[in-house]
Structure formats: C-alpha cells, structure tokens
Amino acid sequence: MAVLSIGIFYYMDLQLKNITHSYGEIDVLGNIDLTVNGGEIVCIVGPSGCGKSTLLRLIGGLERPVSGEVLLLGEPPKESLNPLTYIFQDFALLPWRTVEGNVSLALEDHSISKLESREIINDVLSRTHLSDFRKALPRQLSGGMKQRVAIARALAVRPAVMLMDEPLSALDSQTRELLMDDLIDLWMRESFTAVYVTHNLHEAVRFGHRIVVLSRRPGRVREVVKIDRPLGDRGDANADLEEVQQHLWSLMRDEARAADRELLHG
C-alpha cells in the first residue's frame, strides 16, 4: 500500500449546473449555476431561509436536487478518504466518544492500518491544538473546542473540498474570531477548496475569495463578489473590505426584510 502523505489537501473543482430544488410545493432554490475552483474558498450568503444550507447538502450529496446536477471535475485524489467533507454548525460530535474517538470515527470504515490512523489522529489533533484534550468527552469541551474537534475530524479524511455549514454560528463572538483566525491559518499553510455558508457578512469578507449572494426564497444567485486581497492580509480593519461588506449588506437588506416578513406571516 502506498504511503500516504499526511496533511496535504487536494484540489478538485466543483461545478453546479442549473440546480433547482423544492420541498413539495415550496421552491427553495432556482437555477443555480456556480463553479468552485481548486484552492478557492467560496462563501455563500443570503437572507435566512434562502436555501443556503440546502445548497450545501446538495453539493455534498446528502440530498438530491429536483433538477440540475452537481459535477466533480477530475478524479478525486486517491489519498483523499472522503473528498467532500462537511463541518456542521452544531458540531455533530458523538457525545459517547472522546475527542480521539470522534476523529477516529471518520477513519474506521477505511482500510488503513491502526498505526497509520493513529498517526493521522495525532497530526490533526496537533494542528487544531487539541493534543492535550484527546481523552476528553464532548460535554467537557466549550463550543469552540467542539468545533475544533469537528475540524480535526474533517482534516483527518483529507478532503478535496470542505463544505462548511455556518461553522461559527453557534459560537460566541470572541471564540468566533479565534476560530476564524485558526481556519485562515490552516488555509495559509496549505490552501484547500471550500464552500462556506454563512449569514455573517463579516465572516464572508474575511474568509471568501468569492462571495455568492443568494436572493430570498427561492434562492437564486443575485451577485458574485470577488475579493482580490489575500486572506492573510485581511486581519485588521480594511477600508476596501468594509466597503465590500457594505455593498453585500445593501444587496441583502431589502431581501432580508422581505424574508423576515414572509416568515412572520407564515
């Protein structure tokens, strides 16, 4: 068996072709066309209920679109155990398994040796600063630590594309900042491909190379905003980022208000 190199992300392009989706009578997504290039982070923002999370589930094959297709361009690299890997908003850790056990869950169904899987676990835990907590149970960890475990678990399967569903939304604002820095660090060390769904425009302009703005339900692509400033250079207050954020908000404000009303009136 080939020796696996640890800690390298692999590129794979994703293409969404004319995706339409509905739940019964309710249309959630309409005619979404989108390409995600290797090594790029695409953020998806939009008012609540616009189908952002649904879109992510469609991309990862957890749901089937009513029409249209999601294509993977190129073979996923052999070393990748799970090419499309999610990070969930509510962490989705097994409460009966330790930190270590939760990471190993993702490796157990693959034919890799015990030794190798231990090496992978050690590596991802050290990269997410969790080495001292390997025997802890999820209930003993803070929200930020739990999400670190989920990130470690995702890294362990060497994904080609990371699918992040509001990964920071369940955390308080300080933890959110810290974890955002960690994610950017991870990307700076080894760039990876990601689709990042959020309702937080600040996160979107910090983390996205491109930001896709969806309209309210049924979600359609309203605009794609490109940010050229490199990720490592977005730390402190930047006038241009501020401007992009303002622009995004102006795109979304009316939609968000309308979406809010829609929910209130059932």
Binding site: G60, L62, N82, Y86, A92, L94, L105, V157
Partner: peptide, 20 residues
Amino acid sequence: TLIRMGQSFGLSWLSIVRKI
C-alpha cells in the same frame, strides 16, 4: 444530525447503526 454526519463521512450502513 449525527446520522447525517455519519453519512457525510461515508460510513457504511452497519457502522451508522452500530456506532451512532
């Protein structure tokens, strides 16, 4: 969400039943 997590990591049906 735990079951969906198991599916998203490509766990087998039996693994999901046994471990989740």
